[in-house]
Amino acid sequence: MGGGTPMPKKGGTKSSRAGHKPKKGGTKSSSAGHKPEDHHKMGVVHHRGSGKRFRREVTSRPRLCTYLSTLSARYSWRNQTIGHADECSALMQFKQSFTTSKSASLDPFAYPKVASWMQERTRRNCCSWDGVECNEETGYVICLNLNSSCLYGSLNSSSSLFQLVHLQKLDLSDNHFNFSKIPSRLGHNLTGLTLLNLSQSSFSGQIPSEILYLSKLSTLDLSATSFLDMTFDYDHFSSSKILELTNANLRSIVQNLTNIQQLHLNKVHILSTLPDIFANATSLKALYLQSCGLSGEFPVGIFQLPNLEVLDLMYNEDLTGYFPEFNKSSPFKKLNVARTNFSGHVPASIGDLSSLRVLEPRIM
């Protein structure tokens, strides 16, 4: 023991390979002058057995994925659309003009999108905010989608919303605007709108005629809040909580909004006949008029509109009419005249409507 060469410990250090012959094939990994760990970086795998090769390939992939993810994140950050400071400020003012309450929205999955809006240094670019979309080239806000966002408060003509003059789509549906009136300024400042959805948001009063200035609209949804019973009595319901549309403005919708494809006016207080001019609305694809208090005879020409897929007249008990013969080319998918005063027979030609999925007749 004394002065002799000390015996190495069992399984001595991995780095002390002097004096040992490498196993067959063991020199291949170093023949090119690379360290063993370099092979992970280069994606080159030299193996002694199939099991080891499999383990090395699996462990090398996350490094590559991490690199690509980082590269992608850096690239998207550099190319992210930057919003205009004045529009971002207008959005913040809009947010601050409301409170948020879960009870303000009917959708059980509603959440306050504006809660994530901030103007801190790292998050002041409004083009990245929830519900906001900007034009990639100009940076202007072109879409504001705050449906089911738990907003509560009044919307008035002084709102900073009307500074977003480049808006093309505006969806404020399923919020509670405290039975305020739809601001007439909407028709003056947001003339580029192609979609306007204010449905189920507790607006009241007359729908302003300025809405007719939105000549680019293809979708207009002003349906009243659905917690009102479908058969509610207009005469006994508080007029301060009813959204109304005059017959003259209803007629002008067809005359002025020549691009309209989707028109939703469920539970809007109309209380008149439906103008015959609706039979000229050739661009219409969907017409929703549930529980509007319509009366008189329904214009039969509407059934012949070439693009109409959905017609819903339910709960207009003073509305009379009948089904005409249908063309095979008619694109109808849904016909609902339940709880109306339609009469006559259902024509056999309705069986030729290959796209029809929902039929709710009310034939006396």
Rank of each mutant, 00 (worst) to 15 (best):
C150Q: 15
H176I: 00
F323E: 03
K23L: 09
Q206W: 07
H39A: 02
S160N: 10
L308G: 00
A286D: 06
K41F: 09
S105K: 13
S201P: 05
Q80K: 10
Q96Y: 14
I277A: 07
P62G: 10
K23Q: 15
G139V: 12
S238A: 14
Y140K: 13
R48P: 06
S105W: 09
G293W: 03
E244G: 03
G296T: 03
S72L: 15
R78L: 12
S154D: 11
F94Y: 05
I260K: 04
H84M: 07
V58G: 08
S72K: 15
A110S: 15
S89M: 10
S223W: 06
N178D: 13
E87S: 01
L71P: 02
Q119T: 00
S16F: 08
S343G: 02
S29L: 09
G192K: 11
N156Y: 15
N135E: 04
F278D: 04
S201E: 03
Q80R: 14
E136L: 03
S105M: 09
N247T: 11
K23F: 01
T59D: 14
K10T: 15
N259W: 13
S226W: 09
G131F: 09
L146A: 00
S72G: 14
C65M: 11
G187L: 11
V337L: 09
F232Y: 12
V165Y: 02
P108S: 13
T66L: 14
S252H: 07
N147R: 07
K23C: 01
S209Q: 15
S149W: 04
